[in-house]
Design a protein around this nucleic acid. Structure first.
Lengths: 151, 151
DNA sequence: TATTGTTATACTCTATAACTATA
DNA sequence: TATAGTTATAGAGTATAACAATA
């Protein structure tokens, strides 16, 4: 990941470049921070989605994360293998699995979240509290309220 | 890419989630904007790196982009196939190729950049000019001045 | 017929290792 | 010996298509 710069048309100030490399750095920091808990950032995302909610099917969890249900199958296989989540056939609709955190999963979620919070602080370390909060807000606006379709 | 939200521990306010989805949206907008010119965002990045500089070897171009030299080979194969760049053996060091934009490449770079600028404006459309500029600045700070190693 | 979970498969992006030609 | 470009290959990460069980 070189950051060598030169003059010229400034590749490094294009939003596409900046977002890609920012995302790579955040993912790196998360991976490092979460390693002691045996999970990565994507898996923490799954734990998040399963936490503190009514019973959740695999498909619902996938939709909340914005990933395909077939991808969710593999993620749950892994997390179940680690003893962090449990699948249970839904009594009301036997096509479904109800997926829930195990006790170990709850514990890992709590501790891994703290580690990830620290990783986020490191990511933002150069920014100052106001700019950091602004960055969060702006990203949230963009991600959750993308522009209306304006045909 | 679902954006269905619920209450709970707020997956959607984690930086990892926000950056990933913001990056996906920007890439999507770029792809759409650049399609008329027959390139995608990554290829535009290569054109950027090759523009307005002294002669550049494949390896130098790869380093500036932060990608592997083997990845650069494939990108240049594609761009050369489209007639946008040309390889020429370096007379001074015949191991190297000097890579440069063709006239068509210069033209495509100019027009594709305008299209990409429009895509960036669409990406930022919900933000207001000040927040948009702040977002750029913050990302640039993070990407180009990541925290000092602090053992 | 439609939906859920699953499997098999394939595609994209990227990197590592090894080859070649030069230095 | 070391470097630039190349090729073959492999590994993530993700999606599409098809299948079984259930609705």
């Amino acid at each position: 990941m070189s950051r060598t710069d030169g003059p010229g048309p400034e590749l490094t100030s294009r939003l596409g470049y900046l977002l890609k490399h920012a995302q790579l750095r955040m993912a790196e920091l998360n991976t490092k921070a979460l390693a002691p808990y045996g999970i990565d950032g994507r898996e923490l995302g799954v734990l998040f989605v399963l936490a503190g909610r009514e019973p959740t099917s695999q498909q619902q969890a996938a939709q909340r994360l914005g990933i395909d249900r077939t991808t969710m199958v593999a993620m749950l296989d892994t997390l179940e293998g680690k003893g962090l989540v449990a699948r249970q056939p839904d009594a009301n609709d036997r096509r479904r699995n109800v997926v829930a955190l195990t006790d170990a999963g709850q514990d890992t979620l709590r501790r891994a979240t703290e580690a990830s919070d620290a990783a986020e602080r490191e990511f933002l370390a150069q920014l100052g509290p106001q700019a950091a909060q602004q960055l969060r807000n702006s990203l949230q606006t963009i991600v959750t309220h993308p522009e209306q379709e304006q045909s």
